[in-house]
């Protein structure tokens, strides 16, 4: 009994730390909300908003969806979805191609620590530069169309892809490179026969994962005029036409789920 009682006194007071931690989080939460100017009339009419939304969803515009009836096919959701997919796909492809040299540039194994640091720094800047701002800039050069979307996604993807490619290169087995050195291979030959066969699967898998992200991005970029579904979405949102918004949302959900499913299936095959 004595020993146990003494031991109980020794028990670390974890709950004090926990309480302080939880208390601080709650305080910060309250503070976050306190700073927000809440539009109470809107909050009070959420019920009505919900009804309006549901009514819109119950009245999906199928002519608009398929691009039939009064709509030309090029105005329909199906066509716009294909444009969005095209922006994502070509943008991802472009990003992956451009990311390969950056991957090497940021790989400690290939270019050494010093240069890799610089490569990494460039990639960080690309990664943290807000995508939509990049799109706003590129819009001036490439116009209000899907090409801007492709360029934005292509450039923005380099940040993440380059970093992950560099990691894939750094994690691979180095002994085949030694063997290639031994047979007198030059740098390009080492890349072709020593590196590419080893990292191809990882690189493809990373690129497919990025495609998932980019399909969502391509939708959003349309909002500022970079092609695809986004433009119609923001137009419908401005007038709160839930029947049109719902039609577009349906397409987004189907598109994203399909691409996710295909991409994760293919990634499963790769490992």
């Amino acid at each position: 009994m004595r020993a146990a009682e003494l031991a109980l006194k020794r028990k670390p007071k974890r709950w004090v730390i926990n309480l302080v931690f939880v208390g601080a989080t709650v305080a910060a939460m309250v503070y976050s909300f306190a700073g927000s100017t809440i539009n109470w009339t809107r909050v009070r009419t959420i019920g009505i908003s919900l009804r309006v939304m549901m009514e819109g969803f119950a009245d999906l515009q199928w002519d608009f969806f398929f691009g039939t009836g009064i709509f030309r096919f090029e105005e329909g959701v199906i066509y716009l979805t294909l444009v969005t997919l095209a922006v994502a796909f070509i943008g991802t492809f472009m990003g992956a191609v451009l990311a390969i040299p950056f991957g090497f540039l940021a790989s400690h194994n290939i270019v050494g620590k010093r240069v890799a640091r610089i490569g990494e720094a460039i990639l960080v800047i690309i990664r943290v530069f807000p995508e939509i701002v990049l799109a706003l800039i590129l819009l001036k050069g490439f116009g209000m169309n899907a090409l801007t979307g492709v360029m934005t996604i292509g450039i923005h993807s380099i940040g993440m892809l380059g970093k992950l490619f560099a990691e894939a290169i750094d994690n691979m087995d180095k002994s085949p490179l030694e063997a290639l050195d031994a047979v007198g291979a030059n740098a390009w030959q080492k890349i072709r026969y020593g590196i590419i066969p080893q990292v191809a699967a990882d690189v493809s898998s990373i690129t497919l994962y990025r495609l998932d992200i980019n399909v969502r991005s391509a939708t959003v970029l349309g909002i500022i005029g970079a092609g695809g579904l986004g433009a119609s979405l923001i137009l419908a949102a401005d007038s709160w036409s839930w029947n049109i918004l719902g039609t577009i949302l349906l397409a987004i959900v189907i598109m994203v789920l399909t691409v996710d499913a295909i991409s994760s299936y293919l990634r499963g095959k790769l490992v």
Partner: peptide, 19 residues
Amino acid sequence: DKLMALESLDTMGILEKAF
């Protein structure tokens, strides 16, 4: 209960490992 837990540890000879 807390004492019970510590006593069991004492019985098993590992009270000093409690925490």
